[in-house]
Design a protein around this nucleic acid. Structure first.
Length: 528
RNA sequence: GUCCCGAUAGCUCAGCAGGAUAGAGCACUUGAUUCCUAAUCAAGAGGUCAUGAGUUCGAAUCUCGUUCGGGACACCA
């Protein structure tokens, strides 16, 4: 809708301009302050310019009225335009708010270490990533989602060791000698017991078995993580194992060396990441010849770029921010365009319940499990809360609020609007097919504005994806639901002379809510 | 010390490449139900947009400084 209007206006204007929505719909549906920027060039008052411009749009099917007010140019859409669009949308639900784009995107998210179940912080990145994926695909982007599995290195050995020691204590009932760092938490004990069952108790009697337990534990954790993800409606296209890429190190390393951005110092190999704003250069190969953790990411990104996407999006926890510069540097040194990589940082989450804040820490064992929160408030509420706040702000929320069944709980409020429309249709005894092609006549300003709001979904979806600001979609749905509730309270639908007209508008509202929620991974309810 | 993110109503947060009178929800006060679910709606009250300067027709929004809060600063992954 916006695109069409933009083009129509541009046809006359023949220059770039900003199209915005006025604060108050009584001004118009769209507006532009273009006269202000023209004022300087033309050396005329913006008020006059706006008046002259408004004249140009008198003959037009899309606009009912174009007016100039205090220098602003306001466009009021015609009933016919909105009506036609509404009819189309109601018969093309799957295509509504969709689009076509050519870009191929690789979206990497979650990528939590397979050393424990997902905690609430992981869930935020997971939900944001999954929703971006849904939005992008609906808009016609070709997106692959990917989970990078850190299945090599110390933390995996630490997992095996933790299971091993836990087995000694909890299965063999002997005293174990715990090192300073190890994984805590119930799940380690569970793993130890399961290991005793799957293998044999004797596995805890020889330190050589730690390696076996590491590998086995990693697999167990990965399938637990996949199960956690399924709980909130997330499935990945690919899982890429860090370990499996290690064989390619020589190849990637050779590319790096060609760039003359590597050098040897103190028997180690460094990359000049400080050229890219990193605090200092980083070691990629230690003096004993072993590659560092960064090497893993270098191979992985080499691998990603070899697969030839137009754009790469990584969603990382905020604690990884220091990593962006060095990974981008490495990508550049490998000979690729690092600007194709976009990193979204998901900030920390604090959870409240009864006013008590929890801090989470993966190592300490007192982190909040995502699955516990899902159990408390359900998948939909969890998804919604993460999608209703900007990724880059710290988020604090109270689980008790999301359990409430009233307007303080936004997901409930939206669903209620959707269910309400459904109930009204049932009362009226009509179906969408009965009213979707009728002509809307004599629309009151309020009815027209409600319809207009419902038809905004496509541009909101586009904007939410392009700007990676998903909260714009959730905000929109809340305000659309609010408009519906308001209209419902002011107007009787069933039995009124406007019944069909209102049903059609309501159906359009419900359509936007349903499609919008679906893109957020939430199924709209027909009944509360 | 360096870097990243933030600071908007009592609380939790929006504010869309600067634009019309600063928004929502919660909480608070008041009102609406013989009628489609009042699980809702309406009205009221509540703000020096942390702070100082700059840019310009115009700043919550852009730039710089300051203050406060959170986080990150491994040859660990």
């Amino acid at each position: 809708m916006k695109k069409k209007i933009f083009d129509t206006i541009k046809n006359e204007l023949k220059r770039d301009f900003v199209l915005e929505k006025p604060k108050d719909l009584s001004f118009g549906h769209y507006a532009t302050p273009v006269a202000f920027s023209l004022a300087k060039e033309l050396r005329k008052s913006p008020i006059l310019i706006a008046q002259e411009l408004a004249q140009k749009y008198t003959k037009n099917d899309i606009f009912q009225e174009v007016t100039a007010l205090k220098g602003y140019l306001n466009f009021k859409l015609s009933n016919g335009f909105l009506d036609e669009y509404s009819s189309w949308a109601l018969t093309h639900e799957d295509e509504f708010a969709s689009d076509k784009h050519d870009e191929k995107i690789l979206l990497e998210y979650v990528s939590a270490n397979p050393t424990g179940p997902l905690h609430i912080g992981h869930a935020r990145g997971a939900v944001i990533g999954d929703t971006l994926c849904r939005l992008g695909r609906h808009l016609g982007y070709d997106i692959d989602s990917e989970y990078y599995v850190n299945d090599a290195g110390n933390q995996i050995r630490l997992l095996g060791l933790s299971i091993y020691l836990s087995g000694i204590e909890n299965v063999l009932k002997e005293k174990a000698d715990w090192p300073e760092e190890y994984y805590r938490g119930e799940y380690i004990v569970d793993l130890a017991k399961k290991a005793a069952n799957d293998f044999d108790e004797n596995i805890f009697k020889d330190e050589k078995n730690i390696e076996i337990l590491s590998d086995w534990g990693k697999d167990m954790m990965l399938s637990l993580i996949e199960e956690n993800l399924r709980q909130i409606g997330i499935e990945f296209d690919n899982f890429v194992s860090e370990k499996s890429l290690y064989g390619k190190w020589d190849e990637s390393f050779a590319k790096l060396q060609k760039s003359d951005k590597t050098y040897k110092k103190d028997e180690k190999v460094w990359i000049r990441s400080s050229d890219f704003g990193d605090e200092k250069d980083r070691v990629v190969v230690r003096d004993d010849g072993r590659a560092t953790y960064l090497a893993g990411d270098i191979i992985y990104h080499d691998n990603k770029y070899q697969r030839g996407y137009d754009r790469y999006i990584n969603i990382w926890g905020a604690d990884h921010h220091g990593y962006i510069a060095r990974v981008k540097a490495a990508i550049n040194f490998l000979g690729y365009d690092e600007s194709k990589l976009e990193v979204i940082l998901a900030q920390m989450v604090s959870l409240l319940k009864g006013g008590e804040p929890f801090k989470m820490s993966k190592r300490s064992g007192n982190f909040i499990l995502m699955s516990d929160v899902v159990q408390e408030i359900g998948k939909d509420a969890l998804r919604f809360i993460f999608l209703s706040k900007k990724a880059d702000t710290h988020l604090e929320f109270d689980v008790d609020v999301l359990k409430k069944q009233d307007s303080s709980n936004p997901i409930f409020y939206i669903n209620y609007a959707h269910a309400r429309v459904n109930q009204i249709f049932q009362k009226s005894g009509k179906k969408i097919e009965d009213i979707r092609d009728i002509e809307l006549k004599d629309l009151t300003p309020n009815a027209k504005n409600l319809l207009f709001n419902a038809l905004l979904l496509p541009e909101v979806v586009e904007d939410a994806f392009q700007s990676r600001q998903i909260q714009r979609l959730s905000d929109y749905l809340v305000s659309l639901a609010s408009s519906l509730h308001k209209f419902y309270n002011e107007n009787r639908v069933v039995g009124s002379e406007n019944e069909d007209t209102y049903l059609k508008i309501f159906a359009t509202v419900a359509l936007s809510i349903r499609v919008g929620l679906k893109l957020m991974g939430i199924e709209a309810k027909d009944k509360m």
